[in-house]
Design a protein around this nucleic acid. Structure first.
Lengths: 142, 142
DNA sequence: CTCATAGTTTAGAATTATTCTAAACTATTG
DNA sequence: CAATAGTTTAGAATAATTCTAAACTATGAG
């Protein structure tokens, strides 16, 4: 193993393994972003994650944050949540669940999948197959 | 009534009435956009509606299309549907219903509200009230 | 370990959807 | 018809996101 590879792994062996299993090279930037993201159930935007990284002293360009969020999503490590026309949210909870969206705070809150159910969905249009059923409960703070 | 007001009303008395009831002055642009929109259940984006207006020979700026879509929405004549991070859709069907979204065609299809039901929604976060429950069934053409 | 290479990162430019600005225009009301 | 409040618009501005091409790095072979 090269010195640089050793450096990237340093302090986060399970993260590099997780990235490798997902088919992604464990680069410094991806490992660092993963270390911020995969610490529980989190909702981030590209901007919020980039700020968080900067605040932690990590040197990661905004373009890389965008790239990584999309790569993580394609690899199934993240889920993209469309609730707001203005920006994209990414959720580290990739299990079966839905969301509250607090409209005047731009904040997402998970609803466990066990609780919620959708019934009566008609057959999808001919020639199409269902990918996912998204429920967004839009709430507003009084 | 002025000549110009008469002109705006020409050929669409019920549309001007509908706009007035919604608290919107029936300007030429709004009446014309309304005449394109309120002809059945439709899904449009600002761009698609602007193109349609242009194709019909109507002189309406893109800014006015954006303004009108938002004013119509605020007035309850339209409903905004958030399904795609890239652009906003507006639905002339303001009744209780949900949507299929064909991901690789960027197309919306209504699901009548009678069919579909969501159960098991937990209490909203303290201090918030539910505005609406949106269901998006994401489908893909094979 | 070292090299070659394929994959990755990045600054900055470019793109896209949308909003803003302020000046010209128009519906409404007295 | 005149005054005024509301509306439209071109064009600039903004914001999120993507693109480009050059510099960098992880990886696997030798």
């Amino acid at each position: 193993m090269s010195l640089s590879a050793r450096k990237a792994q340093h302090g986060a062996p399970h993260l590099t393994a997780r990235l490798r299993q997902a088919g992604l090279r464990p680069t410094r930037q991806r490992v660092e972003l993963a270390s911020l993201l995969f610490t529980g159930d989190r909702h981030v935007t590209a901007e919020s994650l980039a700020e968080e990284a900067a605040a932690a002293g990590l040197k990661i360009s905004l373009a890389t944050v965008y790239n990584s969020l999309h790569q993580f999503t394609a690899a199934g490590l993240l889920r993209q949540v469309v609730v707001d026309a203005a920006r994209s949210y990414f959720d580290t909870n990739i299990g079966d669940h839905q969301h509250f969206f607090v409209e005047n705070e731009n904040r997402l809150i998970d609803i466990p999948g066990e609780n919620i159910a959708v019934s009566g969905v008609p057959n999808p249009p001919p020639g199409t197959a269902v990918e996912r059923v998204d429920v967004v409960v839009r709430v507003k703070r009084a």
